[in-house]
Every structure is written in C-alpha cells, then in structure tokens.
Amino acid sequence: MYPASFEYLKPQSIEEAMALLTEHGEDAKLLAGGQSLVPMMKLRMARPKYLIDIHRLADLNYIREEAGQIRCGAMTRHIEIEESVLIRAQLPMLAVAASEIGDVQVRNRGTIGGGLVEADPCGDYAPVALAINAQFKCVGPKGERLIPAAEFFSFAYTTTLGADEILTEIIFPLPAQDSAGVYLKLERVAGDFAIVSAAVQCAVDKNGVCSAIGIGSAGGGTVPQKALAVEALLRGQKISPELLAKAGELIQVDAEPIEDMRGSAAYKKKALSAILRRAISEALRQAEAKRVS
C-alpha cells in the first residue's frame, strides 16, 4: 500500500487543470475524489507521475435544474447527489444509485464524474445515465463537446474521453412527469460493486400500455449497456407476464458477463434477467400509481 512517487499538482481553475493535463499528457491523472485511483496507486497498478487534484474545484460542484434538465458538476460528491432534494424529487433513481455506492466514507469523498470516468463495468451511475440518455459535457484543448451516455463507455475501465479532456458536467434530461424510474442493484454485501444492476424509467398510459421506456444495465458485459432491444420490445406494449419473461430472455442474448468472485458468467446472465424483470415491474407499478394519482 505504498504508491510509487508522484508529483501532486493543485490547479485553481478548470483552465489551469486543462493546461496541466495538456502539458503532462499520459503521465498525468486527474484526482477526482480518489476512491478508486488512490487504492490503485497504493497497489502500484496505477503509477501516474503527476496527480492533478481537481476534486475541490468549486465551479465543478453543483446540482441545478435548467430547461428540463438536471445538471451535475462532475465534482459533485455522491453524498450530495444522494441527499439532494431536487434529485430526490425529480430523478429519485439517481439518488438511490448514489446512496448504494460504497460506504459513507466513500460517498463523502467520491464524485459522480470520477465514478463515471472510472468506468467500472458495474458502476452505479452508468445504468441510470443510459436509461434516460444523459449527456456528458467534456472540455479539451479543442473546446467543448457533448458525449451521449451510450457512446461514453468503450471497454472495462475505459471511456471515449480524450486523454487531454476533462468531464465537467453530467446532464440528465428530466423524464416526463408521469413516468417513474427504478434502480435495482444485486450486491453480495452492502456497499460492494453490483453483481448486476438495472435502471428503468417508464410511463404507462390509461390503457396500461407502456408509452415510454428507457433501460440501462450493468454486469452484463465489460461495459454498462443501454438495453435498446428490450426497450423496443416493450415500448407501446401492454406488459404481460409473458412479455416480461421475454424481456428477461432478451437481455441475456447479447450479455457476455465478466466471470469473477461475484459470480460466473452464466450466473450473472440469470441474475441480470431477474433484476431487470423486477426493475421493470416495479417501475411500471410506480408509473401506474403516478398516472392514477
């Protein structure tokens, strides 16, 4: 637990951070809370020569509602998302996802941007971001760009973010008022990374037809997935038990889970199917309750 030597840099602004990142390139890592990076450094699995600490940059720490979107600064801490009145009211499944990360100590320091860029195949935010088509705002030497959640994760622990880019903001479009969202996570013990997880946002009309649905899942492969095929299967349909079972089958078709101490690939496929079906059922139940009320 003794990291290799590194230089600690503490920029005062995003611009300064950008400049340092451009200067040191691949030799540098951004410290965004350090809940995964620091343990990796202690194990010497990560050996950055420069550690650029951005986790206290105040202009990256905010939660606000703007034009039908919730915008989170990338350095907003998990605990702030978990406890945000705004998020709890408008996007409760995001608050739930944040509340299930690690333990209180981790949530006090870890940040949403750090968690997303870490890109753990079983991270908690990704399924939520995928379900509702969040966008990730990044800044780099060439300026700003928006990456859709579905294009952000490229492999386990790898994203499409450039080495000289910084994720600055996560933009969650607010779901329709009559829709409901559920995040369900299967974990070995509390605070662990998920074995599998699923986030479902959906709405039902007065005929019981699923009028809108978005699904994200983790644990089914090296990257979190947007379950487009399952969404297509269910959208515009009345969800019968048979159709739900079919959704459970369908999610397994393309799944290629990583085998690890959390379970075999075969197990994770079955678990993913179960968790997805439960998340769909619960989201439908909540959406129906909302519609009626």
Partner: peptide, 16 residues
C-alpha cells in the same frame, strides 16, 4: 490466490 483483497474477499458489514 485470486481473492487477496477485500474487493474479492468480502467480509460482512454492519448491514449484514
């Protein structure tokens, strides 16, 4: 040994 850290060797916590 493939379970040589608390990531892989899970101990029960207060919630368990």
């Amino acid at each position: 040994l493939i379970s040589s850290s608390f990531m892989d060797y899970r101990l029960p916590c207060a919630e368990e």
